[in-house]
């Protein structure tokens, strides 16, 4: 009887230890994933910041001005305004 109990207790402790270690490994893996995701977020934020700056640089008024004039566009002149429907 005592021997059976001892074997059961031994088995239980082995099981518990196995479960505990697998839990710990899962945690470690999750932590690694979190770190990787954090790094990815940081990288994405950096990329967004760079793209934002680049878009602003491409859209700067002196560049648009030059490109628009090459297309034959120019600032609207006073006589080019009109009212729709003849209402004053």
């Amino acid at each position: 009887m005592r021997r059976v109990l001892a074997i059961l207790a031994g088995l239980a402790s082995v099981l518990a230890a196995t479960w505990l270690y697998s839990l710990k490994h899962d945690t470690a893996r999750l932590e690694a994933t979190v770190h990787a995701t954090e790094r990815a977020i940081e990288k994405a934020e950096g990329d967004i910041a760079a793209l934002k700056a680049e878009r602003a640089w491409l859209g700067r008024p002196d560049r648009i001005d030059e490109l628009a004039r090459k297309q034959g566009l120019e600032p609207i002149r006073p006589e080019q305004y009109g009212r729709i429907g003849g209402r004053p």
Partner: peptide, 19 residues
Amino acid sequence: VERVAPILGVLPRRVATVR
């Protein structure tokens, strides 16, 4: 003035009518 008035939304006085 000629360049910035349109950007500032200042309308010229005599505006032709579009029908």
